[in-house]
Amino acid sequence: MKKGLKLILIALTLFAAFSCEEDKVTEGISSITYYPVITLKGEQWNQVPVGGTFTDPGVTAKEGDKEIEVKANGTVDTKTPGVYVIEYTAVNKDGYSSIEYRYVGVISAAATADISGSYKRNAGVFGVSKVAKVAGNLYTADNVGGVAVPSPGETVYFYYFDKGKIGCPYQLTSGNAFECTTASIKEGVSYSWVVINPLFGTALRTFVKQ
């Protein structure tokens, strides 16, 4: 009986010791974590002419009901045609972060063509991409890689920002993320880019206007 009592006391002592260690490990960590939610003020996709002005409308971030700090990274050179990205980051008290993006196309006066239309890839499965104007020099392409049957997650935004030049920055799509590099366009003829995504190869993809 005494031996059994000793074993019970030893077990209770060990349990208490483990409980204390667990408390030390989890000390200072919230039992409920509210991930940061970043809300953009103004438009996500913006454009200005070369020589124009752009003022960042800013963002807000909340952790639950509490407003928290946001750090912005990125600048816009309105003297130089191109596509510029501003990245916003917010971190909650447990170290979890959220990221949001704002895009600014600085548009050259030479980018005057309407490049919308259907374009067929000249290799692979010869998939067709429909390029549609959103506003000004901001467009979408609904088949970024020229696959046979694109999904909604393969529609990307891009800017036609100068003669012969297009820019498709890193962006989150429906359940995916894309960026296109080495991008160019022959107005009325074709456009080309390399798709940056784990499911796509590194080949330059060319789409010819139909």
Rank of each mutant, 00 (worst) to 15 (best):
F158L: 13
N122T: 15
Q47M: 11
K120S: 11
V208T: 11
Y119H: 06
F15G: 13
T182G: 02
I196C: 06
K93E: 09
G117D: 08
G146K: 00
L14V: 15
F126Q: 13
S151K: 14
V144N: 02
A177W: 11
A90F: 07
D56A: 11
Y34W: 09
L9F: 11
W193M: 06
V189C: 03
T202L: 04
A17W: 12
Y157A: 00
L9A: 14
Q47T: 04
A72V: 14
V156T: 07
M1P: 04
D77I: 10
A17S: 14
G146F: 04
Y160R: 06
E67A: 10
P152V: 15
E27I: 02
V104K: 04
I166Y: 06
D77S: 07
Y103P: 06
P152T: 12
R102E: 09
I166S: 01
V149T: 15
T55D: 12
G51Q: 11
A109C: 02
D23P: 00
G136W: 02
S97D: 15
D114E: 13
E67F: 02
T202I: 08
S118L: 10
L199D: 13
G105A: 12
V144F: 03
I99M: 10
N137I: 08
G95C: 14
T78W: 01
N176W: 03
A141Q: 01
G175D: 06
G201R: 07
V147I: 15
V76I: 12
P57F: 09
D94Y: 06
L9R: 05
V50H: 10
P57D: 12
Y191T: 05
I38G: 07
G146D: 04
V76C: 05
P152N: 10
V134R: 03
D142H: 08
Y119M: 07
K62T: 15
P169L: 06
E100I: 05
R102A: 06
A61S: 15
G175Q: 09
I29P: 00
V70S: 01
A123P: 00
D114P: 04
W45A: 04
G58M: 05
F126V: 03
Y103V: 07
Y101Q: 02
A72L: 04
V147R: 01
L138T: 02
G175R: 09
P57M: 11
D94V: 05
D56I: 02
Y84V: 03
V128N: 09
A11N: 02
I115L: 05
I68D: 05
I29H: 14
A109R: 05
K71D: 06
G146R: 01
F18N: 14
E187K: 11
K120H: 06
L7Q: 12
V131T: 08
Y191N: 01
A177T: 10
I115P: 00
T26R: 09
V147H: 10
E179L: 10
E67S: 15
Q210G: 10
S30Y: 05
A141D: 12
E69P: 00
Q47E: 14
Y84E: 03
V91G: 03
K120T: 15
K209G: 12
R102N: 12
F158G: 02
D162W: 06
N197E: 14
V37Q: 03
V106W: 01
V48P: 00
Y35I: 08
G164C: 08
P150L: 12
T202R: 09
E187C: 08
V194D: 05
S184G: 14
E27T: 05
G52F: 06
V91Q: 08
K130E: 12
I29N: 13
